[in-house]
Simulated assay, not measured.
Amino acid sequence: MMATKVWLISHAANAALRAGVLSAGISGADEPVESLDARAVEAMDAWRARWHAPILASARGAARVLTSPAEIAQASATAAGFEAVVAPALAETAYGEWAGRRLIDIARGTPDALAAWTRDPAFRPPGGGESFDDVRARVGAWLDALPQIDEAIVAFTHASVIRAAVLHALGAPSATFRQLEIAPLSVTALRRTAQGWVWMAALT
């Protein structure tokens, strides 16, 4: 069986992420503040020096590069030295009425709803938001639909998407989603085998 390998890269942290502002998600709107500020550019330079060559070497020099529709993900892919194609399935969670708001403000206004969101993978933010289960279904369908060929895919996306991909690969309960910490610019690798998807330790 041909091996499909997927490198999932969590996008750089911009000012919005550092301020705890929820992304506009799959709505198509841009981030509420600049995409890559000076701190993000510096972090991307270090990431590129560390990861660009090893990932391409693992892919034998050729990889299909994809990105979330979000501006921050596209900017991260460009800064990492890749030309990427937008893949809607890699979009950030849709946060409904919470999109563009700070978590601290949501906690002050609707603490019970925010608490439910942090515990219950089936909870949907008000105003048409996605639950973690929704994101997992979207991402799992994308993974399973990838062609079974000897190919490497590099995907610049979001922490929620990477959590969903890892739990899908492991067949782990969605209730464990908050036990996975995905840091900005972290690298997660998955590989398809005859038994399904497996998680791989990142290069050291």
Rank of each mutant, 00 (worst) to 15 (best):
A53S: 08
V21L: 04
D45I: 13
A113K: 13
R136I: 00
V135H: 01
R119D: 01
A73I: 01
A91W: 05
D112E: 12
R138K: 09
P32Q: 06
R102N: 01
S58H: 15
W7H: 14
Q179F: 12
M200K: 13
W142T: 00
G129W: 02
A75R: 10
L90R: 15
T188L: 06
L190N: 11
A70M: 15
F156N: 06
P69F: 04
R64E: 11
L180W: 06
M44Q: 11
A49I: 06
H11K: 09
Q195C: 10
D105Q: 05
R101Q: 14
R138V: 00
Q195D: 12
A201C: 07
A63W: 12
D112Q: 10
I162Q: 03
R178H: 15
S76C: 03
E42F: 10
A165C: 07
D120T: 03
A62L: 12
E181I: 10
T93M: 12
S23W: 02
F177N: 07
L170V: 08
E71Y: 11
T193F: 13
E130W: 09
A141H: 11
V41A: 13
T204F: 07
Q179I: 01
H52C: 05
S68M: 05
S160I: 07
R119T: 01
A183W: 08
F156Q: 06
W142C: 05
A141N: 08
E151Q: 15
S174F: 06
D120Q: 01
V21A: 00
L167S: 04
Y95W: 15
P69E: 06
S35P: 02
P125H: 06
A169F: 08
P126G: 05
A152I: 03
I72W: 03
L190K: 11
F156D: 02
V33E: 14
A107C: 04
H52G: 04
A43P: 04
A172G: 07
E83M: 06
L56N: 08
W199T: 10
D133H: 10
F132M: 01
L17M: 15
A53C: 03
D105N: 09
E71I: 10
A91K: 03
S10C: 11
P111Q: 04
A152T: 15
S76L: 08
T67R: 11
L17R: 13
Q74F: 11
G128D: 12
D144C: 11
A113C: 01
I153Q: 05
D105V: 04
I153R: 13
